[in-house]
Computed example of a mutant assay.
Amino acid sequence: MVSGNLNVERLLDSITQNLKALMTYRNLEDPLIIGIRTGGVWVAERLHQQLELSSPLGMLDISFYRDDFTRNGLNPKVLPSKLPCATEDRHLILVDDVIMSGRTIRAAMNELFDYGRPASITLVTLIDLQNRELPIQPDVCGDTMTLGPDQQIKLSGPEPLLLEIRQRTR
Rank of each mutant, 00 (worst) to 15 (best):
E9M: 05
D13P: 01
I15D: 00
I15F: 00
T16V: 07
Q17D: 09
Q17N: 07
A21E: 15
L22H: 06
M23P: 01
M23H: 04
M23F: 06
N27R: 11
N27C: 07
E29C: 04
E29I: 10
I34F: 03
R37M: 11
T38A: 11
W42S: 01
W42F: 11
V43E: 00
H48Q: 13
Q49V: 13
E52I: 07
E52G: 06
L53W: 04
L53K: 03
S54R: 15
S55C: 11
L57P: 00
M59S: 14
L60T: 04
S63N: 11
Y65N: 10
Y65L: 08
D67P: 08
T70H: 09
R71C: 07
N72V: 13
G73N: 09
N75C: 10
P76W: 07
K77W: 13
V78P: 02
V78I: 15
L79P: 02
L79K: 15
P80F: 04
P80A: 05
S81K: 06
K82N: 10
L83D: 03
P84S: 11
C85K: 15
C85H: 12
A86C: 10
E88W: 04
E88S: 11
E88A: 10
R90C: 02
H91M: 02
L92G: 00
I93R: 07
D97A: 05
D97S: 04
V98P: 00
V98I: 12
M100Y: 15
S101V: 10
S101W: 05
G102K: 12
G102L: 13
R103W: 09
T104M: 06
I105P: 00
A107S: 14
A108N: 06
F113D: 05
D114F: 05
G116L: 09
R117N: 12
R117W: 04
P118N: 09
A119K: 15
L123V: 02
L123C: 02
D128V: 11
Q130I: 10
L134N: 10
I136Y: 03
